[in-house]
């Protein structure tokens, strides 16, 4: 069983890495987006491998189901979808590379040298036969959200609310400015109403 899990892990992580590389290297933006969803989905599979079903399902629901669709919508509104004849790299790409490498090195090098790498071998805990496997379920996550992490939870929801109100304000259109073409019956009803007002 262990070998199977390891092989699966290798396959899934290889898929994630390849997909992520394809996202940045493919010229067609739609293809890049599709590779991005592949990577999202594979991350979901990785969660499943860790027996975190709830997180995996949420990953699929939020990232694959919702975020990806929004990404696709946004991409379809751009002009150069196929990206033919466009250069992937700017002329000073080496500057960016050096910067990124320096930053990465600045983080990773001290960690590698300062960390004491004498991790003890994991002790095999023999659980009693009937014990429930300790995996954080939905109920635990819910309790954590509502008790320990209530403040971050509320702050996050407030941010979302602000975003929602902002979106409404941006796209709101005055009702009087809206131009509606009425059906015959509707315009008849409207005229009846107007004539009734005139009579009064």
């Amino acid at each position: 069983m262990e070998i199977v899990v390891q092989i699966l892990f290798m396959l899934i992580s290889a898929l994630i890495i390849i997909a992520a590389l394809m996202v940045v290297s493919v010229k067609n933006i739609i293809h890049a987006a599709l590779w991005l969803f592949t990577s999202f989905f594979a991350v979901g599979a990785l969660y499943l491998l860790l027996e975190a079903e709830f997180v995996a399902v949420i990953q699929v629901l939020v990232y694959v189901g919702a975020v990806s669709i929004l990404v696709l919508f946004a991409i379809m509104l751009t002009r150069h979808v196929t990206g033919e004849g466009q250069n992937q790299l700017y002329s000073r790409w080496w500057l960016g590379l050096i910067l990124a490498l320096t930053l990465f090195g600045a983080i990773i090098v001290p960690t590698v040298f300062k960390q004491k790498w004498n991790i003890p071998a994991p002790t095999v805990v023999t659980e009693p036969q009937n014990a429930e496997p300790v995996v954080a379920g939905v109920a635990d996550i819910g309790k954590a959200f509502m008790r320990e992490y209530l403040l971050p939870f509320e702050v996050a929801s407030l941010v979302l609310l602000v975003a929602l109100i902002g979106a409404i304000v941006v796209v709101f259109e005055e009702r009087t400015e809206r131009r509606v073409i009425l059906t015959l019956a509707e315009s008849w009803a409207l005229r009846q109403k107007e004539s009734a007002k005139v009579d009064q």
């Binding site: 599709l34 699929v60 694959v64 990806s68 696709l72």
Partner: peptide
């Protein structure tokens, strides 16, 4: 969750 994938 899985039913929303087919939207893609």
């Amino acid at each position: 969750a899985i039913s929303s994938v087919s939207a893609i």
